[in-house]
Design a protein around this nucleic acid. Structure first.
Length: 267
DNA sequence: AACGTTGCCAACCGCAGCCTG
DNA sequence: CCAGGCTGCGGTTGGCAACGT
């Protein structure tokens, strides 16, 4: 037996809300709240809408203190860092940004922020050397190597967190790697297991302590989410780079998710 | 001016997990 | 313990506006 529908879809209004409907819902909510039952609410409020639709409209648009409009640099930073750490858990991310809804953040990420990061990645301004580790680059400089256009398609952004600090890769969820270069957009994907294996095997690093999010003087602010402490502004991760003398520490720019240079993996 | 394309965002959908009887 | 109902979540879609040709 299938699930009973939450409402009679054929007989409820769908699509954009009218100002009158908004006013009815707002008035009802301000007087009575949900009463613990969204399904029954539309009838009580005199709305010909599905309860789920009412809930969504209230949470994303009508409830007090909703912030609309441009996201600040700080908000960008928080979204990017949390996305890097916990993936697309928009409700958790929204909980850190007062006045923003998960839907807003999701839309903002999908339409603007992700693109912004991709472009930033191409410019090479995406990561910094850890001064305590010396230069991470073969040529001894502290800046990332400049990338020729033909190399640029080798940058990838995982669509969700790649847990470097996990000892077991068997339970990793499927993920897609998106090319950073928006102009090439080559079809590409790999499982996190592949990526994880690459990081270990190709760097001959199983005995090395690849760690993410260790305590670090670079953390300026932490967020406590689900009992875990997550650095809000910087991630510090140790990876082994072919050709380098030792494992290298990178500080990732606060507005940059993991950037995996495919050329590292192919050596 | 007309048409096609792209970007944006509100809203919908289906699923998982929680709650309750 | 179990089944059904409800809520919350994240992915996806539809439609409108802006932009490009």
């Amino acid at each position: 037996m299938g699930r009973a529908p939450c409402c009679d879809k054929a007989n409820v209004k769908r699509g954009p809300w009218s100002p009158e409907e908004d006013a009815k819902l707002k008035e009802y909510m301000e007087k009575h709240g949900t009463g613990g039952n969204w399904i029954a609410l539309p009838q009580k409020a005199g709305l010909n809408r599905c309860g789920k639709s009412c809930r969504l409209r209230w949470l994303n648009y009508l409830r007090p203190n909703i912030k609309h409009g441009e996201f600040s640099e700080l908000e960008d930073s928080i979204i990017c860092t949390l996305f890097t750490n916990i993936g697309s858990r928009w409700s958790v991310i929204a909980a850190q940004l007062p006045g923003r809804t998960d839907n807003d953040i999701k839309n903002y990420w999908n339409t603007k922020l992700k693109k912004k990061l991709m472009e930033k990645a191409i410019t090479g301004g995406n990561y910094y050397a850890n001064p305590n580790k010396g230069s991470p680059f073969i040529d001894g400089t502290s800046s990332p190597p400049s990338m020729a256009p033909e190399q640029q398609h080798n940058l990838w952004i995982p669509t969700q967190q790649v847990p470097f600090n996990s000892s077991s890769s068997s339970s990793l969820p499927a993920t897609t790697l998106q090319p950073c270069n928006p102009y090439l957009q080559e079809a590409a994907s790999c499982s996190p297991l592949d990526l994880y294996s690459s990081l270990f095997d190709h760097k001959q690093a199983p005995d090395r302590n690849l760690q993410g999010f260790s305590s670090s003087p670079y953390y300026e602010n932490d967020a406590i989410i689900g009992g875990n402490t997550i650095p809000l502004y910087y991630n510090y991760s140790t990876v082994a780079v072919p050709g380098a003398a030792e494992d290298l520490g990178f500080m990732y720019n606060p507005t940059t998710p993991y950037i995996i240079d495919q050329s590292w993996l192919d050596q």
